Amino acid sequence: MPTQSTASRSENAPAENAPAENTLGDGRADFDFFFGRWNVSHRRLQERLQGDTNWDVFGGTCEVRPILGGLGNVDDNVIELPGGAYRAATLRTFDPATRQWSIWWIDGRNPATIDVPMRGAFEAGVGTFLCEDVFDGRNIQVRFLWSRITEKSARWEQAFSPDGGDIWETNWIMDFARQV
């Protein structure tokens, strides 16, 4: 399975937190590009799964660091919603046996709850992560895509499917720009 290159790991990542060198090529270094500090441009649909075409546009920041000796990472986010800013965190862990990542979202407005984990991997420079969840009482599939990854930028997209994955509605896009 192709994996994301580790050559683009940020100089902003503290050396003492850097993961051990990935000599296995199994995917554990796929998120190494993300270590450091980022400015984030958000676009989020105002209404999800309602046929809405109105987007809120807002900013934020994100700081990412490795954990578990390179088998995971955590990020701390400030999300500047039009109605008021909040904090959130993402926890990612890698399972060498399955060569898959698990991703959990923790919303600071409800920190006692952790979202259903997304699971997936990178292939040809694109990360695809899926889970089944419930939104407004409806069973849905959720997809995260990581793409457009460079040393200084990346894109994350979230999409929902109410029909088992036949049709996807992208409802949140985050464009990351590395802080200098």
Rank of each mutant, 00 (worst) to 15 (best):
E169L: 15
R119D: 05
A85E: 05
G36S: 09
L130R: 08
G127M: 11
V74L: 01
F135M: 15
T53G: 13
D32K: 03
R109I: 01
F129D: 03
P2C: 11
F122W: 01
S161I: 04
L71F: 04
W55I: 11
D30V: 06
T98Q: 07
L71D: 04
F58R: 06
V142P: 11
P19Q: 05
F35L: 15
T170E: 09
V126Y: 02
E151A: 12
I114D: 08
R155Q: 09
M1P: 06
A121M: 09
S153M: 04
N12I: 00
G137R: 13
R9Y: 03
L45K: 10
Q179I: 09
I79D: 02
G120H: 02
V116S: 11
F94P: 12
V64I: 09
N77K: 12
W38L: 01
D166G: 14
C131S: 11
E151T: 05
M1R: 08
P111G: 11
E16H: 11
S161C: 01
M174A: 13
A18C: 07
K152L: 08
F160M: 11
D107G: 05
V40G: 10
R44P: 09
E169I: 08
R87N: 15
A7V: 06
D136V: 10
R43P: 03
P117S: 06
G125W: 04
E80K: 13
D163E: 02
D95W: 00
F135Q: 15
R143N: 11
R143I: 14
A15N: 08
V142L: 11
T128K: 10
T128D: 02
W172H: 08
R178W: 01
F135W: 12
A13Q: 08
L130I: 07
Y86F: 06
R43S: 05
E47A: 13
P111A: 12
S10T: 02
G51M: 08
A15L: 08
N171I: 05
R138G: 10
A20Q: 14
P19Y: 00
I167L: 14
D136Q: 13
W172S: 13
M1H: 07
P66G: 03
A177E: 06
V116N: 12
N73G: 04
N39Y: 04
L71M: 13
T170V: 12
G84N: 05
E21K: 15
